[in-house]
Amino acid sequence: MINYIWLFFIVSSVVIGFFTGRLQEVGDAAIEYAGLAVKISLALIGVMALWLGVMRIAEEAGLVSLFAKLIKPIIKRLFPDIPPDGKAAVDITMNVSANALGLNNAATPFGLKAMKELQKLNPNPDKSMASDSMCTFLAINTAGIQFIPASVMAVLAASDSSNPAEIVAPCIVTTSIVLVIAVIIVKILEKLFPEPAKSLKAKEENSDA
């Protein structure tokens, strides 16, 4: 699927760029964004190392498992396939909390650490295939939970808005609704397109019965 989407972006960019006379810009953008991707990755190394270091302290101090106990009930419902008091559960919670607070610099390292833990628990024999838990986690992340849209308020303030903060409440309401919808969608899709391992198991159970 991602192969087709990627192909679509590349092919349509070149074809449309040809007809709009922006072929030069398309080529420039390809080079520019390749550099940008490396810049982002390198910048991420610093914050990644910082948070992974701090979280290691929390882990060795037993803080992580303490925290995990508190969030167990929610994790159990959303992520039935992972141990509810394990590392993955904690990293997921830290990522969501940091996102909600608008701390993007902390959210991404927690999120990537969560993915690493989820990959260890991935039941698919083919590890390049996403697990149900990964899909649920990403649905939560792409829904864009954010309680403080700081950059948006900055843009409004720059254009002489009389009260940039008035968009905070509508944004919270919107992202909350979208989050719930995203989780419902991902759970429905998960049933429609089960993990290969799970559909095999379901078949076996059916034949037993």
Binding site: M1, I2, M115, L118, Q119, A130, M134, V186, L189, F193
Partner: peptide, 14 residues
């Protein structure tokens, strides 16, 4: 970050 290339339903959900 974990080498997953088969996104399954995550893409459609997003």
């Amino acid at each position: 970050s974990v080498g997953v290339t088969k996104f399954r339903h995550a893409l459609a959900a997003g």
